[in-house]
Amino acid sequence: MDVPKEIYLALKEIRISSKKLESLSLSTRVVQDLGIYGDDFDDFYELLAQNYQSSEKFDPIYCPDEFAWTKQLILWLPFVSVKKHIKCAPLTLQEVHNVMTGQSASKPEEAE
């Protein structure tokens, strides 16, 4: 596993399933793959800040609020996976590590 222990421990603490924990990689996306957003993201961030002993912040483009899904009509349909379709910039675990260690996650328009 190449995911830093600080991230792994934070994910375990917020009760990400064992199956998802086993398949983590640095390219795993926080919202789209793990379904962490809103209040869950706040909890995840607090654990990261403790584990990394850092107060670095994430750009809000990566962190949709708790009710982001209500802003998109298709997500009201019962068969649509809400967390996979929330619109926000993808934030990988590599970018999480970069931010928490003082590097910055590039914004999508800068990543090209």
Score class of each variant (00 low, 15 high):
32 Q>W: 06
62 Y>C: 14
68 A>N: 04
56 E>P: 08
49 A>Y: 00
33 D>V: 05
59 D>M: 02
7 I>S: 01
88 C>F: 00
95 E>A: 14
5 K>V: 11
46 E>D: 11
17 S>A: 09
39 D>N: 10
22 E>N: 11
59 D>Y: 00
17 S>P: 06
57 K>P: 04
95 E>Q: 15
73 L>I: 15
86 I>L: 05
8 Y>I: 12
83 K>T: 05
58 F>G: 11
78 P>Q: 04
10 A>P: 14
9 L>D: 12
48 L>S: 02
14 I>N: 08
4 P>C: 05
20 K>W: 01
85 H>S: 12
86 I>E: 10
104 S>Y: 01
84 K>I: 00
76 W>F: 07
97 H>M: 01
6 E>S: 11
44 F>G: 09
79 F>S: 08
44 F>V: 13
30 V>A: 04
61 I>L: 10
21 L>D: 01
40 D>F: 05
60 P>G: 08
111 A>G: 04
32 Q>M: 09
40 D>S: 13
58 F>W: 07
110 E>S: 02
100 M>F: 02
52 Y>W: 02
103 Q>P: 02
58 F>Q: 13
112 E>F: 03
57 K>M: 05
96 V>C: 02
98 N>F: 03
49 A>D: 00
88 C>S: 14
73 L>Y: 10
24 L>N: 03
47 L>A: 09
93 L>E: 06
5 K>Y: 00
78 P>H: 01
102 G>V: 02
11 L>M: 08
62 Y>N: 15
11 L>Q: 01
111 A>I: 10
78 P>V: 11
49 A>K: 13
5 K>C: 09
91 L>I: 03
18 S>R: 14
39 D>Y: 05
45 Y>R: 13
8 Y>S: 09
23 S>D: 05
52 Y>L: 05
38 G>I: 05
36 I>F: 04
71 K>L: 14
81 S>K: 12
34 L>H: 03
112 E>V: 02
42 D>C: 13
89 A>N: 08
88 C>L: 06
28 T>I: 04
47 L>V: 14
92 T>H: 07
24 L>F: 07
17 S>H: 05
44 F>K: 13
17 S>K: 09
64 P>N: 06
100 M>D: 03
99 V>H: 01
55 S>D: 14
26 L>G: 09
95 E>F: 04
60 P>F: 00
24 L>M: 10
104 S>K: 10
83 K>D: 10
66 E>V: 07
80 V>Q: 06
90 P>W: 00
69 W>V: 12
46 E>S: 12
40 D>Y: 01
46 E>K: 15
104 S>E: 06
36 I>L: 06
95 E>M: 15
39 D>W: 03
10 A>E: 03
91 L>D: 06
77 L>P: 07
31 V>W: 01
45 Y>A: 06
45 Y>G: 02
60 P>Y: 00
87 K>N: 12
43 D>L: 13
83 K>C: 11
26 L>V: 07
33 D>R: 11
30 V>M: 07
107 K>L: 15
14 I>R: 14
84 K>G: 01
101 T>I: 06
51 N>W: 00
77 L>N: 13
19 K>I: 12
44 F>R: 11
2 D>C: 02
24 L>A: 09
5 K>L: 11
76 W>H: 15
41 F>C: 09
10 A>T: 08
